[in-house]
Amino acid sequence: MTPIIQVQSLTKQFRVPVRHKGRFSAIRTLFSLEREAKTAVDNISFTIQKGDMVGYVGPNGAGKSTTIKMLTGILLPTSGRVEVLEFTPHQQRQQLARRIGVVFGQKTQLWWDVPVIESLRLLKEIYKIPAATYNANLELFNDLLDLHEFQHTPVRQLSLGQRMRSDLAAALLHNPDILLLDEPTIGVDVVAKEHFRNFMHQLNRERQVTVLLTTHDMTDIEKVCERMIIIDHGRIIYDGLVASMKEQLAPHRTLVVDFTQTVGAIELDHTELVTHDGHQARFRFDRRQISASQLITELAARYPVKDISVEDPEIEAIVREIYEGTLQTPKET
């Protein structure tokens, strides 16, 4: 079966103006025309099959958005091959556009001052969506996204969560084969994020849409994607199943405890004390060895606990550890 997305040895370099250093650096820069190459994406390769839900993760500046732009044809690769739905994105951009949906997290594609439904009507014209499909999708969105609650509200008056849902509806209105999401939940509250994740599941069930989700929210990935690709400094450093990743690479969680009164030395089995200033202590533990609830019970029984929270490892921390080689990176395909 031909993969729906194929990326081979893909590289993207930008030319940025050189900032001179040293004496009179400012004046020299003013008069200079030199540029130097900055590699945003460095020789990456991966394939995605139809129906896959893949997370594309990495710290800021890792090259995620650049990759998405090359997949959609907005950006011309410096070298390498990319094929989406058997199109060469940069050369067949508008044809590809009919078959994909994109959500750019921080910018809405909808018209700002008019009700959501007006934007959707216009998109119907742009994508030449048959009336039957259009109506069916609106119904689906009413069901899954509660679209009817705010479809008559101008976009500028929507909450961030509602805006995200509207953008999802807009991106899926024309039944695209692929849905590309570039940081869709950034700045969105926890409840809305939950809705988003549920929606993704239902979408996959109903429509078999292939999804590529870029984010640096680990929980989004965990809950939505079976597979994840980690990119850092333009290079892929992990490509495999989410489940394996969690177990093998990021089994550690952090328990943060606030005490009602100053506490001296603490002892807690199966944990490693990270910091302790008398009022707050942080413990690192391996989830494979012991669960958070067990530790909480233990702590609460022995110490005057005011508040407890559990922190999952940040993707940045994991990535850093992978990069530093302190974690193994089994590259599965």
Binding site: K69, T72, R98, I100, F104, K107, Q109, I126, Y127
Partner: peptide, 12 residues
């Protein structure tokens, strides 16, 4: 502001 990208991603 990247709004132009949105134009490019539509079949128009």
């Amino acid at each position: 502001h990247g709004r132009f990208d949105q134009y490019l991603v539509r079949p128009c």
